[in-house]
C-alpha cells in the first residue's frame, strides 16, 4: 500500500491556498473595518476618547524626551502656581489704593498738602472731576455723578508687598 509522503502532504496542503472568501469580500473589508471603528468610538465614554487623544498627542510629541527634564517642568509649574496665588490673594482694598495714584485724582488745593500727612492718607474731595452742562446730560441725567474714586484703575499691574 502506498502512503502519502511529506511531499505529497505538502502539495495537498498547498491547495488550500486557493480557498478564497466570497467575491468582493476584500473590497468590502476596509469599509467594514471603518464602520466598526466608528461604532467602537461612539460606544466609548468621552473621557476615554480624550485620554486616548492626549496619549496619542504625547506620543506624537515624543514625550520621552520631555521626561528627561522633569525638574525643569516641575519648577515651572510650581512658579506659575505661586505667582497665581500671589496675584489672586491680594486684598481688594490694597489693590485699589495702590492702583489709583493720587496724581490722577481730583485736584487738591495747596493748603491740604503737608509733610505730616502721607499721600496715602490724603482726604480727597468728593467733587466730580468734570462738570457737565445740562444739554450734555441726556440719558445719564438721572444717574448719580461719578467720582474719581469710583473709576476704573489706570493700571492692572500686580501689586507687590515689601
Amino acid at each position: 500500500m502506498n502512503e502519502f509522503d511529506d511531499n505529497e502532504i505538502a502539495r495537498l496542503l498547498r491547495l488550500k491556498r486557493y480557498e478564497q472568501p466570497p467575491p468582493g469580500y476584500f473590497e468590502n473589508f476596509l469599509h467594514e473595518f471603518h464602520r466598526r471603528q466608528r461604532d467602537e468610538i461612539l460606544r466609548q465614554p468621552l473621557w476615554r476618547i480624550c485620554l486616548e487623544r492626549a496619549h496619542g498627542l504625547m506620543l506624537r510629541l515624543d514625550a520621552r524626551s520631555l521626561a528627561s527634564y522633569p525638574a525643569a517642568v516641575a519648577a515651572v509649574l510650581v512658579c506659575a502656581a505661586v505667582i497665581s496665588l500671589k496675584i489672586y490673594q491680594q486684598p481688594e482694598t490694597a489693590r485699589v489704593a495702590l492702583q489709583s495714584p493720587p496724581a490722577l485724582s481730583a485736584p487738591i488745593t495747596e493748603g491740604e498738602w503737608s509733610l505730616t500727612s502721607p499721600v496715602a492718607t490724603q482726604i480727597f474731595r468728593t467733587q466730580p472731576v468734570r462738570s457737565f452742562n445740562g444739554s450734555a446730560q441726556t440719558h445719564r441725567a438721572a444717574a448719580p455723578p461719578r467720582y474719581v474714586l469710583d473709576s476704573v484703575p489706570v493700571s492692572y499691574e500686580p501689586t507687590f508687598r515689601f
Binding site: R11, L12, L15, Y18, E19, Q20, P21
Partner: peptide, 23 residues
C-alpha cells in the same frame, strides 16, 4: 460551505493537481 467553488477552475490549481495521482 465557505470553500470557494471557483477553486476547481483555477489554472494553477489544475496544474498542481495534474501530477498528483491521489488527487
Amino acid at each position: 460551505d465557505d470553500v470557494d467553488a471557483s477553486i476547481q477552475n483555477d489554472k494553477e490549481f489544475l496544474e498542481s493537481t495534474a501530477t498528483s495521482s491521489p488527487v
